[in-house]
Amino acid sequence: MIKQDITQYKNVWVFIEHNEGKIERVSLELLSKGAELAKDLGCEVCAFTVGDKVEQFAKEVGEYGAKKFYIIENPVLKEYRTEPWRDAIVYLIDKYKPEVALIGATTLGRDLAGTVATKLSAGLTADTTALDIDPSNKNLLMTRPTFGGNLMATIFCPDNRPQMSTVRPGVFKAVKNPTKPEIIKEKYDITEDKIVKKIIEKVQTGEEKVNLSFYEVIVAGGKGMGKKENLKLLEDLANVLGGTWAVSRKVVQAGWAPQSRQVGQTGQTVHPKIYIAAGISGAVQHVAGMKSSDIIIAINTDPEAPIFEVATYGIVGDCLQVLPKMTEMFKQKLVK
């Protein structure tokens, strides 16, 4: 491994993921977390991105605390494509040398991070759920779940910069912290004929993209809900509680609900105040995504179901009876 002069590297950078002119929520969450890290390191939190018209995002990244905003604008970078975005980003990082670079662990972010890190020979930690600064040496400590959340590992990167990490959406809170960012615009020449990947077609699945981590109450259902039509019971109770509904992966695989509603290792991580798990067995991969909820209420016909191991309150019973009853009684209490 080549020894680097790591003292040249400074500041915490946050990648601003955007799609159709809108910033992904996770990027703002990371700006807030990045500001905390920058404070511990005695440096600045900065935003960076590439694309076609990205200067327009300056106001919003400023609202969330970015002191500087590094950008590359080029019409051929309009739609995300791995290779040209990577090369433009590597150019920025090589030039300005941030000590930390954070990227949302979204579909796009995970596609991008691995290739950027390889180009830079940088250390990259995937899917981090906690970020801290080691007070003794100022290294970034990145904690992440492995083995479906059964084991946590704290990773650090002593000799290479930037220290890169992808971070799951919903892990940190986006907090407003207004500043007026300085915009640093770099020129990066690339033309369409140099890009071998062509996007033929994009299809939105129509289903709205739900960000489950926004909700303080989540009513989730599993295969034990019996059939697609019964998922309405989740929605009814969620409405009464002012929350939203979610599902396990088996429900997604059965085609009863879209992937955007899935909680767990391969779905979303959530930590609501109240999580109701109805007809969910509590497989490790599901629990990995919801076990930090404040109150977990489990409803399952099987008293041995593993979900009861993590539940604050357990109800052995038929969710098709318990859910409507909850909806009916809670409605009376909550609507006054």
Binding site: G123, G149, N150, L151, T154, F156, C157, P158
Partner: peptide, 10 residues
């Protein structure tokens, strides 16, 4: 470049 500082069960 990355090293495991510690591993622990949650």
């Amino acid at each position: 470049p990355t090293k495991v500082k510690k591993a622990f069960t949650p």
